[in-house]
Structures are given as C-alpha cells and as structure tokens.
Amino acid sequence: MGQIEWAMWANEQALASGVILLSGGIVAVAGQFKGWQFGAYAIAAGALITLLEYPRSKRKKGSTIERCGQKHMTAVVKVFGPLTRNYYVRAFLHAGLAVPGGFILATVLGTVCLGIAAIIYFVAAVCGEEWRPIEVREEPKLKVSETIKRPPENPPPRPPPEARRKQADEGHANPTVVQDEV
C-alpha cells in the first residue's frame, strides 16, 4: 500500500468530473436552457478534461493498470511535457476551467466535482507527485533461431566436474520437471 498517491484519486475524480461536465453541457444545449452557451462551453471543457485525464499516470511503486486503450492518449499527453506533467498546472487548469460552468444549473455539478478534483490535484502537487507516462515495456525478445527448438540440455554454467560425471552416467536429464500423474 505505502504512501497515498493523491494524484491517482484526483485522476479518477477529474475524469468523472469531465464526463459530468460534458453531460451537463449536453443537457443544457439539447434542452436549449437559458444560458445554453455555457453548456456549449462545458461540452468543450468536459471533452478536453476527459481526454487529458484518460491516460493514467504511472504509480510510483508497483504496477499500474492501464485504462483500456490509453496508450494513444498517453503519447499525446506526453508531448506537452511539463505542462501536463506538473500537477500544480492541472490543479489551476481544472479550477479555472470549472468557473464558467457555475453560471447555469445544468453544469453546476460538474463544476463542483471539478473543483474537488482540482483540490485533490493540489494536494498531490504539494506532496511532490507528478504525471509520468506508462511506457510500453520493451521486453528484450530472445531470438530463437530455427534450429534450436529445445533448450540446451546442459546449459552453462556447467556444474562442477563430479556432478557432471554423475549426470553423464544418468544420461540426459530433462531441463524442466516432468511430473508423473498424481
């Protein structure tokens, strides 16, 4: 478990806020509520936040579960460098983006949620956290040439001579355990 990484919760909260702001905006525009222009703004802001928050940051410790298909957005978010890496920037960005949503009822909920997300991000920033992309680990693929299908029967490092002699007596030993029926 270890130290709490506030940014992970902030990310969930901000993503939810983005979707809520977006939905509120859609309702306001679709219903042609008074001041629906703020709804149009909320659609844009909500979409931006959703896209920005979709790629999860890498956790400091342990493995991180990626969101489905987040690697495309990770690449985009990574391009902005310090702007997207620094959580102070995110905290103030979200706080700023939240304000216009407060002028009509349909987007108020999104605004408040986003405000809370901004606060959690601020806490994360104070704790010295920052966004780090989850890179695809390039696994060094061992090239197996066509002729070698089986692992070597006596791989290096070789056992000391006496053990080797014993092995030779017994003939070939399976490199993996062959287990009989239990």
Binding site: I4, E5, M8, W9, E12, L15, A16, R56, G62
Partner: peptide
C-alpha cells in the same frame, strides 16, 4: 471515484 479498483487496492485508506 474513490472506490475504483486501483484506489481500493492500492490506497485503501
């Protein structure tokens, strides 16, 4: 938002 799997598993508090 605080009950998603990643939060529950990693930051139980």
């Amino acid at each position: 938002t605080s009950s998603t799997k990643i939060i529950r598993r990693s930051y139980f508090e």
